[in-house]
Amino acid sequence: MKIDFSHLTQILQRFKAKPYKIYPVLTPHTGKIIEFKIKEGEEVRGPSGKWLEKPGTPLFILEREKNPKLIRAQYNGIAQNIRTDLLNRFVEAGEKVLEIKHPLSQEEIISEVLLNALLVIRAPETARYILSPELGKRLEKEGLGKVSVKEGDELLIMTFMKRETPIFLKERGTYIIYQIYFKPFELVQAGEPLLGLCPVEDLPHLEKIIQRIKAEWSL
């Protein structure tokens, strides 16, 4: 385990100073923004419900080829820096339309801190990734923190240079899939985290760290 408690305190201090994250909302493709559904400073919600079955707050409508598409919030937070000047204008793909100032929840702090504690599988290339189908199924069924993998298991599939390349676990031992840091089919920059794994034997220590974060963060 790569983290001790003094280090942990430092990291937590950093988050306490800035307990939020800013997510840009980009246009997924070209088109015309025909309506804004929110105003500056309004609260928005990401997908919710037990199965995330309730979609997020509508943000704006992007119309392209006569298909008005409702773009919804993916995170909870406050809508800010809304580019109302883009209304009724043709926008390119990947244009920033607004930001969501997202207050970090205890869970997310844990997830961020764990980047320093877990065995993190990082993107070997700037590419698109999905979980290996088998692992995906197991995770869907059992959930994070339950599924174990061992050396040689297929973890992810990378779509790169028009080829699908499987990514295997190279480390020895048995690990628990603890965190997922990417969204399927989205472009991940090389070096960005994909998965966080915890060696089975370190699980108790990890639980302690999490307890500690929980205690500190609720203060």
Binding site: P28, H29, T30, G31, R64, E65, N67, F90, E92, A93, G94, E95
Partner: peptide, 19 residues
């Protein structure tokens, strides 16, 4: 020039062409 999401995205290409 226009930034689009994908060279394979017919919709983006045609939207730019129309624009």
């Amino acid at each position: 020039k226009y930034r689009i999401s994908d060279y394979r995205d017919m919709n983006d290409l045609l939207a730019v062409a129309d624009e």
